[in-house]
Design a protein around this nucleic acid. Structure first.
Lengths: 194, 194
DNA sequence: GCAAAACATTCACCTAGGTTAACTAATTTT
DNA sequence: AAAATTAGTTAACCTAGGTGAATGTTTTGC
């Protein structure tokens, strides 16, 4: 279980001594998820937050009429979890499912707090991630309001091209907030009209 | 400048000794805004976060084609500001404008940090508000995806009826993510079809 | 390696909400 | 209190994306 990727990841933001990353790893629980397995599902308490060391997952909710809405995909170097449920202990309304075999580094409330207290660099990192998560939700919301599905598709294609190699198209559609048929139509139009 | 409302507000969540609220008030800068005045506008740094003691404001952004999108309305007992810009010192992309004459209790980064350090109850309160803000953005996003404009209108009417007495209808439309004409149409249909 | 299931594409048709524009209140401003 | 601006309503028409159903293509599980 190398912590190579975690090390690289943390250093991307600010230099962190390798020893600190070792501490962080020591507190983590390494967990493998098979394809289609869940880290948690609606109704459970999201007891872990974690780092994706390998694999790809989707975070989604079922609406009142049972339709799935994907909020985000997580691949290597993403932090995952439902912070709201994690902190409050209330059951989550979301589902976090592996789309590929995954390897995760997980923290419980206890190990997470310990890590934040013992490793100041990690605490700063977490604060940053919190802020970014809030911003990201807001940006998604604004983008949904101001842009057409086609524009959002192109933006995703530009900013996150790998995802198309890794997740089925109907999940991409769900992430974009449209139906698979509509995504097909958009792709067709772009391929022709180009 | 009574802190009555702030006292009531904080106690709604957990009991806070009145003396603590006095400390909090002592750190605040009381600011009046006239109707249509801005606390901040796009491009400026959002130097304050604050508590609405009286009045009503809208928080909105202009999209690439110059259209306004209202993210939230704030009335008495709301906390306002762009946390992202406040913490980072980067210019905000939002506008915060008074829709009525307002009285705000404002905190700078310095007084805010001091308040959080000196008043543990306030620190807990702030953490709670952060978490709620993130959740609220996510819920708005999900609601936008799963519900029609009509459903969102009815939900607003139910959960926040006062707002219709206080803000012009075209702002409500902007908040709901539709055009004023569409809101008119929806209201008409509901009035008839009832 | 085959059957079953899950994915993707296409098409015809439908609908919520956008657009444009005309008309009528309400507010502000002077 | 008139003039000017800002708000709200209505209606005809348009368009992005939803629905349903048929058809083909991959994956998956045994």
């Amino acid at each position: 279980m190398s912590h190579q990727l975690l090390f690289t990841h943390l250093n991307r933001i600010a230099p962190v001594p390798e020893a600190e990353v070792g501490k962080l790893m020591a507190l983590a629980k390494v967990k493998a998820l098979k394809k289609k397995e869940y880290l948690f599902q609606e109704g459970q308490v999201a007891r872990y937050v974690g780092f994706v060391n390998r694999g790809c997952l989707r975070y989604y909710r079922l609406d009142d009429s049972g339709k799935e809405h994907i909020v985000y995909f997580a691949i290597e170097e993403w932090w995952i979890g439902d912070l709201s449920s994690f902190y409050s202990g209330q059951p989550t309304t979301f589902n976090l499912q592996a789309l590929e075999p995954c390897e995760l580094f997980l923290y419980t409330k206890e190990t997470f707090e310990q890590a934040r207290q013992e490793i100041p660099a990690y605490d700063r990192h977490v604060k940053l991630l919190h802020a970014r998560a809030t911003d990201a939700r807001l940006e998604t919301m604004m983008s949904q309001r101001s842009n057409t599905a086609e524009a959002r598709y192109l933006k995703l294609l530009e900013g996150f091209p790998d995802i198309f190699q890794r997740v089925p198209q109907h999940y991409i559609a769900s992430f974009l907030g449209i139906k698979p048929q509509s995504l097909s139509r958009i792709r067709k139009k772009l391929a022709e009209g180009k």
